[in-house]
Amino acid sequence: MKATLAPAPAASPVRRRGRLLWPLVALALVLGGIGVRLAASGGAPLPDALQDGVTLAISVFIESLPFIVLGVLLSIVVQIWLPARWIDRALPRTPWLRRGVLSLLGILLPVCECGNVPLARGLVARGLAPAESITFLLAAPILNPVTIITTYQAFGWDHGILVARVLGGFVIANLVGWMFSRHPDQGAILTPSFAASCRAHHEHADGDRRWSRSVARFAEETSTLLPALAVGCAIAGLIQVGIPREWLEALGSNPWWSVLALMALAFVVSICSNVDAFFMLAFGSVFLPGGIVAFLTFGAMVDVKMVALMRTTFRTAAIAQIVAVVGLASLVLGLAVNLIA
């Protein structure tokens, strides 16, 4: 049953001006940008640090955008085109086994972590529990063939880094999934607006105007995710030029600090899990193996960009719990590797 909304009051002139403000500011910024470009005719009018921050932010955005688009397309397929009974049949009934299977779904859908957010949203809209979608969201960036192959190419079997990453990722994702499955009100994990959107989705019959619903879903998902991605990229870019990397590198040889420093670096750089192992090669000679494992595990699950994207779907308290548990578990994993390796 749908609630009936009262007719909206007529907009006052002040409110009408308010509505026009944002598009006008956007238009002015874009036109201003073109004007500056035409007037400057080359050169870089920004200080180096700011210019590098902008370049880094744009770089992360352009690298992530196709994965977001792919994730939204897969989400549309899951939500609108795939019969719900197929998903039900494919997944086991036992909750822990069901989460275990979902955490391996990344093997079939090897997109990077930001592309998994729209897909996880699609799975929830299709009826999966939020705890199950969180398990998938955390596990898929690590338990997928591209990530495993690139980690092997970078480190081989050295110091058990590959094994620790794969097994650690699986265990941590399922630990967090189990933790949230104990939540008495699964709907309370989600933001109210996304929960409402899921309820609206369930009210549609299959086969009802699928094409127009697909287009509408694309518009809604991109409307939610792209602003979050932009903010995440901007923060990641600016932090990278704001925090000197040598501060982190100075901590590399200490068993404790090497783990913590690389986890902090992973959170900041927001690098794609498919290639982060190559990036980590640069630090292989400076940091202990446990720090590298912590970077590869924590960074694939949680970073600035991912937190911004997760805010579109999960409540702030839930995200804080996810970050805390993944962080602690990655810390323990990293210290254990340092102890053994």
């Binding site: 944002w22 201003g32 073109i34 500056v36 470009r37 050169g43 744009i58 602003p227 932009a230 901007a234």
Partner: peptide
């Protein structure tokens, strides 16, 4: 605000030569 950041990034992309 988030949309503004994206528009700002686009404006910067237009204003500054990609580098």
């Amino acid at each position: 605000v988030a949309s503004g950041v994206l528009v700002l990034l686009t404006a910067v992309l237009l204003a500054l030569p990609p580098t």
